[in-house]
Computed example of a mutant assay.
Amino acid sequence: MQSYVQIENAGMVFNTKKGKFTALTGIDLHVDQGEFIALIGHSGCGKSTLLNLVAGLLDATDGVLLLANKEIKGPGPERGVVFQNHSLLPWLSAFENVYLAVEKVFGRTESRKQLKARTTAALELVGLTHAAGKLPGEISGGMKQRVGIARALAMEPKVLLMDEPFGALDALTRAHLQDELMKIVAATKSTVIMVTHDVDEAVLLSDRIVMMTNGPAATIGEILAVDLPRPRERLQLAHDPHYHDLRSKVLEFLYSRQMRPKEAA
Rank of each mutant, 00 (worst) to 15 (best):
Leu100Pro: 01
Asn214Thr: 15
Glu78Phe: 02
Val126Pro: 05
Leu251Met: 13
Lys249Leu: 07
Glu96Ile: 11
Phe95Thr: 01
Asp227Pro: 09
Ala131Thr: 13
Thr173Phe: 09
Gln114Ala: 14
Ala186Gly: 06
Thr119Val: 06
Pro75Ile: 09
Met212Ser: 03
Glu233Pro: 00
Leu67Asp: 00
Arg257Glu: 04
Asp163Pro: 10
Met182Gly: 06
Gly80Ala: 06
Glu138Val: 12
Ala238Ser: 09
Glu156Ser: 14
Leu161Ala: 10
Leu29Asn: 00
Glu8Asn: 13
Ala154Pro: 11
Gln114Val: 14
Val98Gln: 02
Ala121Lys: 12
Asp170Glu: 06
Ala132Gln: 15
Pro136His: 12
Leu24Arg: 15
Glu103Pro: 06
Leu205Ala: 00
Leu50Arg: 14
Arg79Thr: 01
His244Met: 04
Ser256Glu: 14
Ser48His: 04
Tyr99Cys: 05
Ala154Ile: 14
Ala225Val: 14
Ser43Asp: 02
Cys45Leu: 11
Pro231Tyr: 08
Ala265Glu: 14
Leu51Gln: 02
Ala202Met: 10
Leu177Asn: 03
Phe36Met: 12
Ile223Ala: 09
Asp200Met: 08
Lys189His: 14
Asn15Arg: 11
Thr196Glu: 01
Gly107Ile: 02
Gln6Leu: 08
Lys113Pro: 03
Val126Tyr: 01
Val31Ser: 01
Ile149Glu: 10
Asn9Cys: 08
Glu8Phe: 03
Asp198Lys: 05
His197Ala: 06
Ile223Val: 15
Thr109Val: 14
Ala68Glu: 15
Arg257Pro: 00
Leu205Lys: 00
Arg260Asn: 08
His86Lys: 08
Val31Ala: 03
Glu138Met: 15
Lys116Glu: 15
Ile72Val: 09
Asp227Phe: 10
Ile223Ser: 07
Val98Ile: 05
Ile139Lys: 04
Ile209Gln: 13
Arg174Gln: 07
Met155Phe: 06
Ala101Glu: 01
Val210Phe: 04
Leu237Thr: 08
Thr16Ile: 11
Phe95Asp: 01
Glu156Ala: 15
Ala132Leu: 15
Arg79Lys: 07
Arg151Lys: 11
Met212Asp: 03
Leu115Ala: 02
Gly148Cys: 12
Leu246Trp: 07
Leu100Met: 14
Val82Ile: 06
